[in-house]
């Protein structure tokens, strides 16, 4: 009986893994090209400005919504989240902040009016100050 309970418990825990929200398609899969440029350089802790450029088949995407999420590779750091930024003529300028020096990655999610959603991740090394 104990073994049955243990197995049932472990099975229930394993099922939890299937509860996660579906993730957006990688950018390449949706036919989108996402590029980031960040100022100022070299990257250092403090305020920054992220310019997101999104093209589809070589042409700027006329309209869309961009969300950014900056995470450090170290566990337990608070992310920098910028959501629902309007993309116009394939370009969006997003105020950002490097809250600490170290390895960062920014995940960009682009949602087009037809519901297509794509994401891409960019890695950065930021110097502490």
């Amino acid at each position: 009986m104990k073994q049955v309970l243990l197995l049932t418990g472990l099975l229930a825990l394993a099922l939890l893994a299937g509860c996660r929200q579906p993730e957006a398609t990688p950018a390449a899969g949706a036919g989108l090209e996402i590029a980031l440029s960040i100022a100022p350089e070299p990257l250092a802790t403090g305020a920054a400005e992220v310019t997101v450029t999104v093209n589809q088949n070589g042409q700027p995407v006329p309209i869309g919504i961009v969300s950014l999420r900056g995470d450090m590779t170290h566990a337990g750091m608070i992310p920098v989240i910028r959501e629902n930024i309007t993309l116009a003529d394939g370009r969006a300028v997003v105020p950002f902040e490097w809250t600490m020096g170290g390895d960062w990655f920014i995940e960009v999610t682009v949602t087009l009016p037809d519901g297509t959603s794509a994401r891409q991740t960019f890695d950065y090394a930021v110097t502490g100050s």
């Binding site: 600490m100 170290g102 390895d103």
Partner: peptide, 11 residues
Amino acid sequence: SLPMEMRGTEA
């Protein structure tokens, strides 16, 4: 007292 830099060094 130094700024923490959480990064790997494999690069």
